[in-house]
């Protein structure tokens, strides 16, 4: 009957044990050649990529060439507006030899870029049945999360704020509900703008954070990647350590003049 300790603290997703709880992305970098150094500084073991049509007029280099070989690729289905498109992209990503992990992203609102929970659940169900390790990007909605659990997701990835906004954990309360209620790793994706926010998510009990924009658009992406790596480790350690005393607001007569259990001594 021992409590968990910090030793051997791994995150298991789809049977793979990860020691780093920071996932990084490959989008929005000024030059893809930064990616190896960013990956190294972050300590991350999981990195996202997207699948796109080859631009026939101007075929660019393949981003995979810049990704360290030890990293687990997490292709996303960005660009999918329906469940069917997400499934199609996932199958293509798998055919490209990138393993069976897939981040489902179904977005048909191009203004706010918020994910479609219903379509995401349908795509998750189809792909999980095909053996994919499905990590769906979602609004932190309890019912959608339960649908995703039932659909066979390997984790849920709620957004902290609208994608790319760097606005932090705007949905902290709702993410807290998912952490409490959902028996899958809860990976905060989107919205995290600063290492302190990643740290806060981890302190709350998030299983991991996915950070792309905040690193890629920093003045020094490599240094920022290192800072995020440290913040995620610190937040995780704090969560495992148990929170220390916080001076609580005195609630509802917390200093009762007559004790509630005084009758037991009578």
């Amino acid at each position: 009957m021992t409590h968990d300790t910090h030793d051997n603290d791994t995150l298991v997703i789809g049977g793979t044990a990860l020691t780093s709880r920071l996932f990084i992305g490959t989008g929005k970098y000024g030059t893809d050649s930064l990616i190896p150094d960013v990956a190294g500084a972050s300590g991350s073991q999981v990195i996202t990529v997207a699948l796109r049509r080859v631009d026939l007029a101007n075929p660019r280099s393949n981003v995979l060439a810049h990704i360290p070989s030890h990293m687990r690729l997490l292709p996303n289905t960005s660009g999918a507006r329906t469940a069917e498109e997400a499934v199609r992209i996932a199958r293509l990503a798998q055919a490209a030899g990138c393993g069976n992990w897939i981040k489902i992203e179904v977005i048909s609102d191009s203004r706010f870029l918020l994910p479609d929970g219903y379509a995401t659940a349908r795509a998750t169900e189809t792909l999980a049945k095909e053996g994919f390790v499905v990590l769906p990007y979602m609004n932190p909605d309890l019912y959608v999360a339960r649908d995703l659990v039932n659909a066979g997701a390997a984790a849920v990835m709620p957004l902290g704020a609208p994608i790319g906004t760097n606005r932090g954990l705007r949905t902290a309360e709702m993410i807290g509900v998912l952490i409490e209620e959902i028996d899958l790793p809860v990976i905060v994706d989107a919205g995290i703008g600063k290492p302190s926010q990643a740290c806060e998510a981890m302190e709350m009990g998030a299983a991991a954070c996915l950070v792309n924009t905040a690193i890629a658009t920093a003045g020094n992406p490599v240094a920022m990647a290192r800072a995020f790596g440290e913040a995620v480790r610190a937040g995780r350690a704090a969560y495992l350590s148990g929170a220390g005393p916080v001076a609580a607001a005195t609630a509802d007569g917390a200093n009762a003049s007559s004790p509630l259990t005084g009758f037991l001594g009578e």
Partner: peptide, 10 residues
Amino acid sequence: LELLHFVGGG
């Protein structure tokens, strides 16, 4: 034919 390849993404 659809020819696709991986690009940067989050």
